[in-house]
Write a protein that binds this DNA or RNA. Sequence first.
RNA 1: CGGGGCGUAGCACAGUCUGGCUAGUGCGCUCGGUUUGGGACCGAGAGGUCGGGGGUUCGAAUCCCUCCGCCCCGACCA
Length: 595
Amino acid sequence: MRWSTYFIPTLREDPADAEVISHKLLMRAGMIRQLAAGIYSYLPIAQRSILKIANIIREEQNSIGGQEFFLPALNPAEIWQESGRWGLMGPNMFRIKDRKGADFCLGMTHEEVMTDIARHELRSYKQLPQVWYQIQTKFRDEARPKSGLLRVRQFTMKDAYSFDIDQAGLDKSFEDQRRAYCRTFTRCGLEYVIVEADSGAMGGSASNEFMVYTDAGEDLVASCPLCNYAANLEKATSRLTPVDDGADDPVIEKFATPGVKTIDDLVGFPGGAPADRQIKTLIYAAVSEKGRESRTMPLLALLRGDHALNDAKLANAVARQLNRDGWEVVNVRPAHPEEIFELLGANAGSLGAVGVTGKLILIDEALHGRQNMTTGANEDGAHLRGVSIERDIRPTAWVDLRSVAEGEICPSCGEGALRVAKALEVGHIFKLGTKYSVSMNAKVLNSEGREIPLIMGCYGIGVERILAAAIELNHDDAGIIFPLSIAPFHVVVSPLNTRDAEVRAVAERISTELEQAGVEVLHDDRDERAGVKLNDADLIGIPLQVRIGPRKLKEGSVELYDRATRISVDLPADAVVEAILERMSRYNKGVPTEA
RNA sequence: CGGGGCGUAGCACAGUCUGGCUAGUGCGCUCGGUUUGGGACCGAGAGGUCGGGGGUUCGAAUCCCUCCGCCCCGACCA
């Protein structure tokens, strides 16, 4: 490919509205341009990388028996209504009407379409298992698109679905995918970690996310440096060191606490208590919907005074309590001050659950067995001490509600101090079970002739996120450093002085020979100064570069430059093709084919 | 949806507070010349509904109203 006629509009300066590194470099390298918030055009070299990533994904899916489909992005409302997600997806789903006024949406994912095919075509356990996937554009009307390609409204996703007759089959399909994901991300040059993840309100059991550690990520991952425990903060747990509560079975005593509004206030208040001897009482409101009906229910969430509530854990716990009789919890939000006063007769700062009955009370497991605690008295300016939890509080359910904190002890090995770091989700696999097969009536006959719902798994990979993550992980002050496997080209051939006929001729010859050997070459035949060519080549991150200058060429040599190390070696001009092939094969051998 | 910021040439920005010459600067682009191993130099040019609409004024990029778009923080994110 000749650079002079190829479209790579590089920029010298960072665009004003780019914040994260991958966004700046994708723009500067001439890979993407923005069309609207969270909507990007992929220019030629980005498209080349994306096709390579997609192809690696495809090869690994095919290797575990996956069969590629291409499904409609445009979906009729009916199938989403059937699965119950037409309402659940809320404003995150793009919705349109056709000319007759019928409702359609743009697919955010394809459980519904796949399940629809499965229920029409799969009849017998003999046809199972099936692993179906596609690589398609997905649409999500994100409330806040951001960070270049990391959080967008239109993106490419590989989504796979497995259909099995039983749990053992699902376990195998899941494990196949897990291994295929490991190989996929490794081949793309990403360092990743597999974490335990929240499977969300959508149900399902096992759930693993594939995360890349980067500050550009939006998730938090807790991991143990001593064992292989790693979990999304929405799921992570830890072991706590016991707190000494002092005297057994004390009596409850009310005491005046004028002006005390927070846990901290009470720590410093005479006769108060340390934070880990207090009960934090938070009031939330759960909004549920059933068809067009909507109702709001207040609830109490109780935690140890120094512990932080995890919103995702609370939302899941509330859904488990309230999702029944067709009601679906759609939002769990902090209660408004008026709602709090109406519920407990006091204002935030003096709230507690002692003596509260007939309300939904969720209590964090870390409070098990605790006594002689201090909490609000449901009377402004007053608190209670000597509260023994099992004796004095009647919770609806004990649940895990708190976020683990850095430094707490690993729940798996019991020794390591957990670390918490930002990470980007590039893949997510989980066991769906029968949620969609039941709601959409996708059944097959088992070996006993009985009709049973298909057991499903679903497995997603964000294609552009792999590209962006690769850049977040591999760059320097000169630009992108692409892994060979997903680089737009393998080699840039740079004649450094295009006025020199000999330099031009050698560049032509080397480019042609490389192409004939199957190497993807970008021949920088532009009439530019050497500095421009070298800087552009570094910026777009092509792994290898052949630099041909008049001085060294007089002695018969050219330079082979390695983008990652920025080291170049002089080689005889007629030895460079072989040297490149050797380096490329060494790289390819370095990539494991088994996880 | 709440809070903050921004919108002037392809890109990055100045000018706006305090209304007034022909709306500037750098990069990029075109032409001519010189130059040629880490984003060259000289000269000459092209390129603008100052985000849209409305208003105030003798006069609006600048002041007022309104709408739109984009970025950041938060909420949200099967």
